[in-house]
C-alpha cells in the first residue's frame, strides 16, 4: 500500500522552477532512494514534501492530501525530515535538540528519549553538551534522533552520508536499515553515492534536472548499463 504518493510534483524558488512535475511513491515499509547529481532537485523534493516551499501537483500521505498543508501539520501527520547538512540547533543542548524534535507530541516523550539514547549511546554521553560542539557524525546521529522523536511513519533523510567517514556512514545506514526492518519505518533517502544507495534501497528513483528519468528496484537499476556508467563509474 502506498504511504506517500506524489503525482505531478512541481516546485521551485520564486520564478525559478526546479522540479518539473514527476511522480514518486513510497510504500509502507519501504526504503526508497532518490539518486541524482548535485543540483538535480533532490533537496527541493524533500522540502516540497515537508511543506517548506510552495508546490504544485498532488502529494498524498496515507491517503490524505497534504499538497497545501503547513510543515507543522505534516510533521503531526507523521513525516519527519533530516535536512541536508544536519540542521541541528547548534546552541541548544543535545537533549534540548531532541525535545524540540518532539515538539508536536503531547504525550510523554521521556521513554523515547531514553530509547534513542540506547540506539545512539554517544548522544547520551553528550546530552548536556551544545550540539554545535559535536563532531559531524554525532551531529548526523542527533539530526536523525531528533527526527525520530516525533515518532514518524515516514522518515525523509537528505544525504546523511555527506562529509562523514565511511565507517560512520555504514553505522548510520545500519541503524536506518534496522529501524526499517524491525519497526517497519518507511524511509525516503537522498543519496549521491550510488553504491551505497543501491545497497540499502528497495526501490530507486533517478532524478535529473527536476525530472525522474528512471525508476525500478535496486537490482534492476544496478543491472542497467547506462546507469552503471553514469552513477557507479563502471
Amino acid at each position: 500500500m502506498s504511504l506517500l504518493s506524489i503525482t505531478g510534483l512541481a516546485a521551485g524558488y520564486g520564478p525559478l522552477e526546479v522540479l518539473h512535475g514527476f511522480d514518486l511513491e513510497v510504500n509502507q515499509g519501504e526504503i526508497v532512494v532518490i539518486l541524482g547529481a548535485n543540483g538535480a532537485g533532490k533537496t527541493t523534493t524533500m522540502r516540497a514534501v515537508s511543506g517548506m516551499i510552495p508546490r504544485r501537483g498532488r502529494v498524498e500521505f496515507d491517503g490524505q492530501d497534504i499538497s497545501t498543508a503547513s510543515p507543522d501539520s505534516i510533521v503531526r501527520l507523521g513525516i519527519a525530515q533530516v535536512p541536508q547538512g544536519r540542521g541541528t540547533f547548534a546552541d541548544l543542548t543535545v537533549e534540548d535538540n531532541m525535545m524540540a524534535g518532539a515538539y508536536v507530541r503531547r504525550d510523554d516523550v521521556q521513554a523515547d528519549l531514553e530509547r534513542w539514547f540506547e540506539v545512539f549511546p554517544r548522544l547520551r554521553e553528550r546530552r548536556t553538551q551544545r550540539a554545535g560542539s559535536l563532531s559531524g557524525g554525532e551531529q548526523q546521529m542527533l539530526a536523525i534522533a531528533r527526527a525520530l522523536m516525533s515518532r514518524p511513519r515516514l522518515l525523509l533523510c537528505d544525504e546523511p552520508s555527506l562529509g562523514l567517514a565511511p565507517l560512520i556512514t555504514q553505522e548510520l545506514f545500519g541503524v536506518l536499515q534496522k529501524l526499517n526492518a524491525e519497526e517497519g519505518l518507511s524511509i525516503l533517502l537522498v543519496e549521491q553515492n550510488a553504491n551505497l544507495a543501491l545497497k540499502v534501497a528497495h526501490r530507486v528513483y533517478l532524478l535529473e534536472t527536476g525530472n525522474v528519468v528512471s525508476t525500478g528496484s535496486a537490482a534492476e537499476l544496478a543491472a542497467d548499463d547506462s546507469i552503471r556508467k553514469a552513477y557507479l563509474g563502471s
Partner: peptide, 11 residues
C-alpha cells in the same frame, strides 16, 4: 538557533 530546522520539526 535555526529557523529552518525549527519549521522542520513542526514548530
Amino acid at each position: 538557533s535555526n529557523p529552518e530546522s525549527a519549521r522542520l520539526v513542526g514548530i
